[in-house]
């Protein structure tokens, strides 16, 4: 790195405050340059471009020529299958936020305890589903949950919880909750690792001190752990929310969005219009419009549903 040669000569003892401040700002901006360049070129520009495609009837090849104005947006907003996929996607995110996030935090606190032997192996075990190939997992899940000869159904029948096999993936009313649970299982390790990293930032001494003050486990959690990990927790929350909204591989591998679209989520919906090999005329323009609507709605709902989050962001940003 060439920048390493430059050192800021601020003389100890006689610092010119405004000069040091100006220098800090310059350095800060310099540090931001790689991010701004890469992110603008490879992330923002494609997004803006896809906003433009959304106004065209375009099959993805050559320059888009047929301008259709807001037709794509109108079509998506008036389509019941769009809204079906939309709400299904949100069910996935509800599962992630209200089940996966707290459960992973609890497990992370357990696996963060240095007194627990073999915690690295446990962490690895919890993490393994994340890196297992989704297509193969889809096959295993289908075999495990099969109404005919599936282990899960045999156990449920055996202990008398149900009196006839549950059609976990074939019944349109059951398939979506089933997939939400499987998705939580598959992604749980990611959240766990983020929580573990967050917990590492809590200094051990704090707990010792709190214990001496007679604070119980719950008080330690409320008074030490939560406040200290809060800045990272906000990021983990955002990340989990965003990841759960983009569940694609698993749904595609296990049900393909079926039966009769009961597990269709927006990424599979978009895929059907833009990339599915069986479609003769891909509609990239329409798919882009759906993506734009999805992004905007998600953002609005995030900001509406999380006044806490918004406040927190504001405080961090201020």
């Amino acid at each position: 790195m060439t920048t390493a040669a430059i050192t800021a000569p601020s003389k100890p003892g006689a610092p010119s405050k405004t000069r040091a401040r100006r220098q800090a700002v310059l350095w800060g901006w310099l540090f931001l340059v790689p991010l701004v360049v890469l992110f603008t070129a490879f992330s923002l520009w494609p997004i803006v471009a896809s906003w433009a495609y959304a106004f065209f009837d375009w099959d993805g090849v050559g320059p888009p020529e047929v301008f259709v104005g807001l037709d794509n947006f109108r079509e998506a907003l008036n389509s019941s299958s769009f809204w079906n996929a939309f709400w299904n996607s949100f069910l996935f995110s509800l599962g992630a936020l209200f089940i996966e996030l707290p459960a992973a935090l609890c497990l992370a606190m357990l696996l963060n305890n240095v007194l627990l032997r073999g915690r690295n192996i446990y962490r690895l075990a919890i993490f393994l589903p994340v890196v297992s190939t989704t297509a193969v997992i889809g096959l295993v899940i289908a075999v495990l949950l099969a109404p005919v000869g599936g282990v899960v159904n045999e156990v449920l029948l055996g202990i008398g919880l149900v009196d006839r096999p549950v059609n976990f993936l074939g019944d349109p009313n059951v398939a979506l909750p089933t997939l939400v649970v499987v998705d939580i299982w598959k992604g749980f390790g990611i959240t766990l690792i983020y929580w573990l990293a967050a917990l590492q930032t809590v200094p051990k001494d704090l707990y010792e001190a709190a214990k001496l003050d007679g604070a119980g486990a719950r008080q330690q959690l409320a008074n030490i752990t939560i406040p200290v990990i809060m800045p990272i927790a906000v990021v983990v929350l955002l990340l989990t929310f965003q990841r759960s909204l983009n569940t694609f591989d698993l749904v595609q591998a296990v049900t393909g969005g079926g039966p009769i679209f009961s597990t269709d989520v927006l990424p599979t919906y978009i895929y059907r219009y833009a990339f599915d090999a069986s479609i003769a005329a891909p509609r990239y323009g329409f798919a882009c419009a759906v993506g734009v609507i999805f992004g905007v709605f998600t953002l609005i709902i995030t900001l509406l549903q999380g006044p806490l989050l918004a406040g927190r962001l504001k405080r961090t940003a201020a």
Binding site: A142, P165, N167, L169, G170, G256, P259
Partner: peptide, 21 residues
């Protein structure tokens, strides 16, 4: 009908047939 067919992928029918189910 054999339950579960609703979400079978393309390879599942011949697998179930080969399994004798």
């Amino acid at each position: 009908n054999m339950p579960g067919w609703e979400s079978w992928d393309g390879g599942r029918p011949f697998t179930e047939f080969a399994a004798g189910r």
